[in-house]
Simulated scan of single mutants.
Amino acid sequence: MNSKPVEVAIAILYSSDRFLMQLRDNIPGIIYPGHWGFFGGHIDPGETPQEALLRELGEEISYTPPWVSEFGCYSDSKVLRHVFHAPLTVEFEQLVLGEGWDMGLLTPEQIRSGSCYSQKADQVRPIGLPHQRILLDFLARGIDTVRD
């Protein structure tokens, strides 16, 4: 059977030297339950990846970045991830979590270690492996996160 991978648009959102991540709900049936991952989601029919990303960010955290830039595409047998990066230009407390268990600003050290403590879960939770790999690539490339 030839099944096409699901396409999603996700965002590396950063503030200074920290990266905004979502702690996914810990429920069966979703990919990477109870893991830290990026905000974003499925691309609806007729949407571009960037349109889907902006819609998802609005739904999930009530945030629209001033700009987004493409970072790359990452795929496996089930998911094609269109990855963008953008600055987080509001205070963390201004974000409204509309989807997920928790959210946090993770440091490069936490990303390298592969896990982070969640106050809401009162547990150290793992970072989803694809998300960790993408962030490690982002950190290694030293992407200029400043726009004129």
Results as ranks from 00 to 15, higher is better:
124 V>K: 15
106 L>Q: 10
104 G>A: 13
106 L>H: 02
119 Q>P: 06
111 I>D: 02
106 L>Y: 02
117 Y>A: 00
111 I>A: 09
127 I>Q: 09
126 P>N: 04
137 D>V: 10
127 I>K: 00
136 L>R: 14
108 P>Y: 10
105 L>T: 10
136 L>P: 00
125 R>L: 01
105 L>V: 12
108 P>L: 13
120 K>N: 08
126 P>S: 09
113 S>C: 01
126 P>F: 01
133 R>H: 07
118 S>K: 07
115 S>W: 00
108 P>M: 13
129 L>W: 05
105 L>F: 12
109 E>V: 05
115 S>E: 15
119 Q>I: 03
136 L>Q: 14
127 I>S: 06
120 K>Q: 02
131 H>W: 06
130 P>I: 08
132 Q>L: 11
117 Y>P: 04
129 L>G: 05
105 L>A: 09
133 R>T: 13
132 Q>N: 06
114 G>E: 09
127 I>Y: 01
117 Y>E: 06
122 D>C: 12
112 R>D: 08
133 R>Y: 01
123 Q>T: 03
111 I>P: 00
135 L>R: 08
122 D>F: 03
124 V>H: 14
116 C>H: 00
103 M>F: 12
108 P>G: 09
122 D>L: 11
135 L>K: 12
107 T>W: 08
136 L>C: 04
123 Q>L: 15
111 I>Q: 07
104 G>N: 11
106 L>C: 05
128 G>P: 00
133 R>V: 09
108 P>A: 13
133 R>L: 02
134 I>K: 01
132 Q>T: 01
107 T>L: 09
121 A>I: 00
116 C>G: 09
104 G>P: 07
125 R>Y: 04
137 D>W: 06
121 A>D: 00
121 A>C: 03
124 V>C: 11
124 V>Y: 05
128 G>A: 15
103 M>C: 09
135 L>I: 11
113 S>V: 02
116 C>W: 00
110 Q>P: 02
103 M>P: 00
119 Q>K: 14
135 L>F: 11
129 L>R: 13
126 P>Q: 12
117 Y>H: 12
106 L>T: 07
114 G>T: 03
112 R>C: 06
135 L>P: 06
113 S>Q: 07
129 L>P: 01
128 G>D: 02
107 T>E: 12
111 I>H: 06
125 R>S: 04
135 L>N: 10
126 P>L: 13
132 Q>H: 06
132 Q>E: 11
121 A>K: 08
112 R>K: 14
110 Q>A: 04
136 L>Y: 03
109 E>L: 11
130 P>V: 06
108 P>H: 12
123 Q>N: 05
130 P>E: 10
132 Q>D: 10
122 D>K: 15
115 S>I: 04
112 R>W: 03
121 A>F: 00
103 M>H: 05
137 D>Y: 06
128 G>I: 07
104 G>D: 13
